[in-house]
Amino acid sequence: MSEQLKLSFSECRHRGNKRELAVLKFLSQDTFSDFKTLSRILQIEKKGNASRFLSNMVRKGLILKHETTFVSSKISLWGITLDGLAIVDEPLLPVFEPSRVRPSTLQHHLDNQFVRLTLESKNCTNWISGDRGEFFKKFEVKHRPDGLITLPSGHNVAIETERTLKRNKQRYQSIMTSHLLGRQKKIWQRVFYVVPTAKQKAALQIMFNDIKFVMINGQPVNLEEKHYNTFRFFTYEELESLSEVTI
C-alpha cells in the first residue's frame, strides 16, 4: 500500500472517530435524537452516507435505533447506550430507553436540540440541559429553563424553547420571577425565548409586557425596563440568521 493510500485511510479513520465522538458527546447530554439532527452533527450531506454511519455505530453497540409513531407517521430515533457513555467517560448519565419516550414532549425535545445546535454553530459553548442532574447540583432556582449556554462574550444565557404558548399569565409571572432571581444570583445574565412563528413571538412579548410586578419573598416588586430587558425573543428563523449572538 502506498504512503498516500495509508495517509488517506488514516485521515478517514480520524475523521470517522471525530464524528462518532461528536454524536456521543451530544447524546450524552440529550440522550436521543432524530436523523435530521444527527446528520447536522455528523456534517454529512448525503442521506445514505449518514444513515450508514449511524448504522455502523448501532452495530458497535454505541447507540440504539428505535422507531416510533409521531403525528400519525413513523419517526426513527437514535439514543446512547451504556457503552456509548463509556466512550465519553460519562457512565452515570441516563441511557436511551425507548419506552420512556413520550409523544407529547418529543417535538419539544427535538426543537430544543435545534436551538442548542444553532447557538453552538455561532460559537456558544458549555450547554447544560435543564433536566440534567448537573443543573440541579449547580443551581438553586424554582423554575428550570430548557438549557443554559455561554455566549462568546462569556455571558450565560438561559434558554426557553416554546412550541406552544402557555395560556395562563400567572404561570409566566412565576417563571419571570424565577428568571429574575437567577439573574440576581448571577447564574445567567439574559433569558432567550425561542418560538416557531412571528405571531407567537409577538403574543409572548405582549404577555410579558402585561406583567407589571413579581412576588419576591412575599412582597410585590414593580417591574422596570431593566427587568423587561432581561428577556429577548426570537423565532427559530431569526435565531438562525443572527451573525453573532450577544446580550
Results as ranks from 00 to 15, higher is better:
M1D: 14
E3D: 15
E3V: 06
L7N: 14
S8D: 03
S10D: 12
H14R: 14
H14M: 14
E20D: 02
L21Q: 02
L24Y: 08
I41Y: 04
K46A: 03
A50H: 12
M57S: 07
M57A: 03
L62E: 07
H66I: 02
E67M: 08
E67F: 02
T68N: 01
T69V: 15
F70L: 02
K74E: 04
I75V: 14
L77V: 04
G79I: 10
I80K: 10
I80S: 09
I80F: 02
T81N: 13
I87H: 07
I87E: 12
V88K: 14
D89V: 09
E90P: 00
F96H: 11
P103I: 05
S104T: 01
Q113H: 12
Q113D: 04
R116E: 06
L119W: 09
E120W: 03
K122R: 12
C124T: 07
I128W: 10
F135W: 09
F135K: 03
F136E: 14
V141K: 00
H143E: 15
E160K: 05
T161R: 02
T164G: 04
T164F: 01
R167W: 00
R171Q: 02
Y172S: 05
M176G: 10
L181V: 06
L181G: 08
L181S: 14
R183A: 10
W188L: 07
R190Q: 11
V191D: 05
K199C: 01
A203F: 02
K212E: 02
N217I: 10
T230I: 07
F231Q: 14
F233L: 04
F233E: 05
E240Y: 05
S241F: 06
